[in-house]
Amino acid sequence: SGVLCCSLPNPRNVHFESINMKNVLHWSAPEGIGHGVLYKVKYLVYGVGKWIRKPECRNINRTWCDLSSETSDYEEQYYASVKAFLNGMCSDWIETTRFNPLTDSKESSSCSQIYRRKKNLLFYVFQWWFSISNNTLVVPWLEPGTAYCVSAQIRVTTPLLHSGFSKEYCIATLKDKTA
């Protein structure tokens, strides 16, 4: 059988991108290589003896692979590795650094802070800061005819982590007809 000659340049920047525990392996194509490159992916639980192939990421031409279900145990840490193939040639296996899903995962955002924006004068009155544990928040005392904007942030206490604030969403309350 044809022996693969591993002289293809290596995939670059092989790393995990993890947001809200969705752990996706990303990499860049080998330097100076155009189309037609295919990739294989494998992963390993740190401290356990063997690499495991990811069938859904075998002979793929994209440069990412979702390993969320394979790296979901936050009591474990992981490595992943990518190999490139083109015209009977291949690269070396190129690994990530050690991935800790507990501390290496960023959170997107969901904790609220409300501004108030009045008429055309754009000023933010930083009014309320709510800490909620589910994803609904009721704010009873709002003024009629006023626009309110909501921006959210995730905060985790163990370990101490917080995300950036989300994009702002604004809504205006109805005008008071009695006034």
Binding site: L44, Y46, G47, V48, G49, E75, E76, Q77, T97, R98
Partner: peptide, 18 residues
Amino acid sequence: KANIQARDPIRTLSILSH
């Protein structure tokens, strides 16, 4: 972390977790 872990080439052994 990255510097220290890069000095440890042994993936298949762990001191604390296995």
